[in-house]
Computed example of a mutant assay.
Amino acid sequence: MKGHDIKALHTLLTGLKISEADIERTAKGLGLSLERINWSEEDIAKFSQEIRRKSMPIVIAANKIDMSNANENYMKLKEEFPDRVVMPTYSDGELALRKAAAKHLISYVPGDVSFGIINADERQKAALLRIKQTMDAYHGTGVQQVINEAVFGLLGLVVIYPVSDENKFSDNFGNVLPDAIFVKKGTTALQFAEKIHTELAKSFIYAVDAKKKIRIGKDHVLNDGDIIRIVSGAR
């Protein structure tokens, strides 16, 4: 890598979907020159760690938080990785709750901090109450919270709902909110149209914010939870 420039470095990293902008920001933050790379082994190690941290963010799921020594291990992880998001999780409990909800034994939606018992026998109630003790201590099972943090926090995504009928919030077949599309924060109406289909973007005329019942232009930045109809000349 020595003696090369940013173009050569980008070629090496392009398979990891790391852009030249990512490389430039990371090198600048570390005070490393990209004109003709002549980094030390220590510089290379620092750059590698930082580019991975920025381009491939990680959230640590501290699972099995219901075990006897789990909280101690959880605190150790937070101390060892102060720059990472570390979240306590209880995946076995989450799985049990989802199965119980499917059988209508409890009322529970993934991400809820608790649940309500509907129709469980004494043995089932005892097992559910053990799960509840852990949930009370950590404000839920943490499973949905980890997913939310990864998607909306670290990756910076928002959810947009495309529709064909802005009054009924439906597609052409009457299905209400049939799709949910993840896009990066800052995505414009035109970029969203391209995400759906390139032809929609090519013949984009305007979009409609279905909740506010207003027209929006191609450069309008969409927000999380927006319901959008794309109006185009495509047939």
Results as ranks from 00 to 15, higher is better:
G3M: 07
H10V: 02
H10G: 02
H10I: 03
K17L: 13
I23E: 02
I23T: 06
E24D: 13
T26L: 04
T26P: 01
G31Y: 03
L32R: 02
S33D: 04
E35N: 07
R36F: 01
I37Q: 03
N38R: 10
S40Q: 07
S40L: 01
E42A: 13
D43R: 03
I44V: 14
F47S: 08
S48P: 04
Q49M: 00
I51W: 01
R52Y: 13
A61E: 06
A62L: 05
N63C: 12
M67F: 01
S68E: 15
A70I: 04
N71F: 15
E72Y: 11
N73S: 02
M75T: 10
K76L: 15
G93I: 05
G93D: 09
G93Y: 08
E94A: 15
R98S: 11
R98M: 13
K99M: 12
K99I: 15
A100G: 08
A101Q: 00
A101W: 01
H104D: 15
L105I: 12
Y108M: 05
V109I: 13
F115D: 02
G116A: 11
I118Y: 09
I118V: 13
A120D: 07
K125S: 02
K125L: 03
A126E: 11
A127E: 15
L128K: 03
R130G: 10
R130W: 09
D136T: 11
G140K: 06
T141S: 12
G142L: 13
G153M: 00
L154S: 01
L154I: 05
L157W: 15
L157G: 14
L157M: 15
Y161S: 05
E166C: 13
E166P: 12
D171M: 14
F173L: 13
P178E: 08
D179A: 14
D179V: 10
V183Q: 11
K185E: 11
Q191H: 04
F192H: 14
T198C: 05
T198G: 04
E199N: 14
A201H: 04
A201T: 00
S203Y: 06
A207E: 06
D209P: 05
D209F: 09
A210D: 07
K212I: 07
K213N: 12
I216E: 06
K218S: 14
D219R: 11
V221S: 09
G225A: 07
I228G: 09
V231G: 06
